[in-house]
Design a binder for these strands. Structure first.
Lengths: 135, 135
DNA sequence: CCGCATCCTTACCGATACTG
DNA sequence: CAGTATCGGTAAGGATGCGG
């Protein structure tokens, strides 16, 4: 069975799990950082604003488990730990970077649509309030 | 302020919210479907295996709010509702499709890495059990 | 410095029932 | 057909403290 037979729309397809793993808040950001070079735990923590130590730890661990990053611990005191991206991780980063760029380029349009939508919603609510008999 | 000034690594940057919205399990799949043409609610529901009616409803609503899809209701009995992708939604789908493909092409490698990792883990656990004094 | 363990709160999600 | 409303379980995530 080669990869042409798979489709992420099937519930049990492992591809679905892969997608789920990729599609979390932090993976995209972390991979984006690491493809510029290896980085230490707290350095990543500082760069990715808002991530907690616990969640960063979990995320890095699962990235390592999937072979997307490698963890190297140097026996210094205190211990130094470096995370680096793997070739396969880099290939993922390549496909995921455009996504981050898209978000940066299109956020204004999204915010505009959002305001328009919310405005239309309150107007509907007002109309319903002013002529409740219509309901 | 143009989009060059934004970066998703800042916690308060709206780009971050955009990324969070994109990066959920279902958005990628739904956009992928809709860029082949408009589709009705239950048709989407059937194609995206495992999604509940509630979550599909929520997801479509927020996609509409962000201007990524448009909802059209035809006054038939019973009502017919069609969801179509917008130009900006299509541009997102274009950057997100490679991601789905990446998942399909690399899942085997990921599963292999995962097995290796888990195996190494139980070996560590065994070693600890067999010579607890070492810990 | 780099985590893991614990507690605790919150947000998500499925199941179910009901409307137009 | 295409939803909305409500309830209850579960799992994610923040806060804190400890250990190698």
């Amino acid at each position: 069975m080669n990869h042409m037979d798979w489709n992420a729309y099937a519930a049990l397809c492992p591809t679905r799990q892969a997608l789920d793993r990729i599609a979390d808040k932090w993976t995209v950001l972390i991979l984006g950082l690491l493809c510029d070079g290896p980085m230490r735990f707290n350095a990543i923590r500082r760069r990715v604003e808002g991530i907690s130590q616990k969640v960063l730890s979990q995320t890095l661990k699962s990235l390592e488990r999937d072979g997307l990053v490698v963890r190297t611990a140097y026996p210094t005191v205190p211990v130094t730990v470096e995370y680096a991206i793997t070739p396969i991780g880099a290939s993922l980063a390549d496909t995921v970077t455009p996504l981050r760029r898209w978000a940066e380029e299109n956020i204004e349009s999204i915010l505009r649509a959002r305001r328009a939508y919310d405005q239309a919603e309150v107007q509907m609510a007002d109309a319903a309030f002013n002529s409740p008999i219509q309901r």
